[in-house]
Structure formats: C-alpha cells, structure tokens
Amino acid sequence: MNATPFFDTLAIRPLGNGTFAADLHPDWAVGERPHGGYLLALLSRAAVGGGSLQPLSVSAQYLRPPKVGPVLLRTERLKAGRTVTAVRSVLEQSGQTCVDAMITLGELPDEEPAYSDLPEMPVNPPQDAVDLANPDTRAAPGLTRTCDMRIDPRSAGFLRGSTSDPLRLRLWARPHAGQPDVLFGLVAGDLTMPVTFNLGRFGWSPTVQLTALLRARPANGWLRLVVESKAVHGAWFDEDTLVIDSTGKLVCQARQLALSPLRAPD
C-alpha cells in the first residue's frame, strides 16, 4: 500500500501575518470529510509554524465539516511565555470558519514519568486482533489507507452483532508510512470508530468539541488505544481515548463530545 507519509500530508505554505495555505489530503478523508484528528494536527502544524515548540494541548470547536481541497489557516499568538505559548488557530474554507482551536505550545518532557497509572494492554496486537482494513468491520475506509489498525474482538461487540457490550474498545494503530510522531499521536486520540458502535449506532458521528493533551513523544512501534464512554444521552455521547506507546508512555489523552445516530439502522 503506497501511503503518503503522514507529515507530508500536513504541508503548509506561509502567506504572511500568521496565515498559511494548505490542501486537505484525500488519504485522510472519509468520503469528502477530512478526519477530525487530522484537522487538529494540521492546525497544530500551523500554530508551531517554523518554531521548535510542540503542542501540549489542543481544544477545538468543530463548526462545520470542510471538504478535501484547499483551505486557509489563520493563526494568532495570544501569549508567548518562557513555559507556554498560546495560539489561536482557525481553519477556513470558502470564506467560512470550519474549525476553531486554542493550542498551547511548549516543550514535551523527555524524562520518565514520576507517576503513571495506565491500563494493561499487550504491546503488539494479538493474533486474534481484527484488521480494520476488512470491510466487514464497518471501519472508516479512508483511515485504513493511511494506518494499520487492529481491534481487540473481545471489546468490540458490534463485530458479533451485539448491542449490549460496554462502551469500551481496545485498538492498536500505526501509520503505514514511517513511524508515529508527535502530531500522529494527536491524530491517534481521534482515530477509533465511534465507541457507540457497541450500541449498534452506525453511521456518521460528528465531533462537536474535542480537547487533546499531548504528554510525550511516541516511540517507534504500535500505539495502543483505550477508548470508552461514560454516558450516552439521546444523540449526545462523550468519548475518552488514552494513547499509549510501545514503551508504555502515555502519549495523548483526548476527550470529545459528539453526536451519534439515535437509532440503529434496521
């Protein structure tokens, strides 16, 4: 599979005054809709610009879905400090704001964590892990072009036709081209199919708001994703994702508020 290297899909062209032009890459789209985590990575790339800082947190409002193709990225530095820099980063298309994000930049720590309490999960996907490139899994087809993704079938009741399993999923992911980097770690926080698949609610589940905390640079190898929801009220649901690298470091914590179809399809 000839996937475009992930960082190459985040190319930006400076236009001056903190404004950049970019092209939303079709490899990171589901139909015409670019993946939400990919949009966060692109906004963060613009916020970093040519500097050496890294995103520490990203909080984004998804106002309307853009389409694959050209976009404008506008950034505004709100604070530049010795520890953190705050940047507003906005993605526009056809004169409309699509995603509006607040991004905190700083230095990611390189030392080992002083404390860590993370769920246990095998470093590599076990033999019975299901490859999400298989169309029978109802995975988003655009993402399997760019990522190798496997899911623990014991957590995915929807694979068995069940609608009563807990809303918890366990997955493994890595890019087809290259190794995960900081911005791919950010993408991984939004890489899973909606956890509400375990309720039988398939179809588009748009993210309304997403906040991601980047905690460390990912090591080479598989990223482990632990995904769960605490409550589903009507169409609204929350989704929390922990992203853990091959050495056991926490790479990203993401929480989003999203909408799901109210009924499972007949």
Score class of each variant (00 low, 15 high):
residue 1 M to W: 02
residue 5 P to N: 10
residue 11 A to R: 15
residue 15 L to T: 04
residue 18 G to N: 09
residue 20 F to E: 01
residue 21 A to D: 15
residue 23 D to F: 01
residue 23 D to H: 14
residue 25 H to F: 09
residue 26 P to V: 11
residue 26 P to S: 10
residue 30 V to E: 14
residue 32 E to C: 00
residue 33 R to W: 02
residue 33 R to Y: 03
residue 34 P to E: 04
residue 36 G to E: 13
residue 38 Y to P: 02
residue 43 L to R: 04
residue 46 A to K: 07
residue 49 G to F: 09
residue 49 G to L: 06
residue 51 G to D: 11
residue 55 P to M: 06
residue 56 L to H: 09
residue 60 A to C: 05
residue 61 Q to R: 14
residue 63 L to H: 01
residue 65 P to K: 11
residue 72 L to P: 00
residue 76 E to L: 11
residue 79 K to P: 00
residue 82 R to I: 02
residue 83 T to K: 12
residue 85 T to Y: 00
residue 87 V to Y: 05
residue 88 R to G: 04
residue 89 S to W: 08
residue 91 L to M: 10
residue 91 L to N: 03
residue 92 E to Q: 13
residue 95 G to N: 08
residue 104 T to R: 13
residue 104 T to I: 08
residue 105 L to T: 09
residue 109 P to F: 07
residue 127 Q to Y: 01
residue 127 Q to D: 15
residue 128 D to L: 12
residue 131 D to I: 00
residue 133 A to M: 01
residue 141 P to R: 06
residue 144 T to C: 06
residue 144 T to K: 06
residue 157 G to M: 07
residue 158 F to N: 06
residue 162 S to Y: 05
residue 166 P to V: 06
residue 168 R to S: 05
residue 175 P to K: 05
residue 178 G to K: 07
residue 179 Q to V: 14
residue 179 Q to A: 15
residue 179 Q to C: 03
residue 181 D to H: 13
residue 181 D to V: 09
residue 183 L to Y: 12
residue 184 F to R: 11
residue 186 L to V: 10
residue 186 L to N: 11
residue 187 V to P: 01
residue 189 G to N: 05
residue 190 D to K: 04
residue 194 P to Q: 06
residue 202 F to S: 13
residue 204 W to I: 08
residue 211 T to Y: 00
residue 213 L to Y: 14
residue 213 L to D: 14
residue 214 L to T: 14
residue 217 R to E: 15
residue 223 L to T: 10
residue 229 S to N: 03
residue 229 S to M: 06
residue 230 K to R: 15
residue 232 V to C: 12
residue 234 G to T: 06
residue 236 W to T: 02
residue 237 F to K: 01
residue 238 D to N: 13
residue 238 D to C: 01
residue 241 T to L: 04
residue 245 D to A: 07
residue 248 G to R: 13
residue 250 L to M: 14
residue 254 A to K: 08
residue 255 R to N: 08
residue 259 L to V: 10
residue 262 L to Q: 07
residue 262 L to K: 03
residue 264 A to T: 08
residue 266 D to S: 13
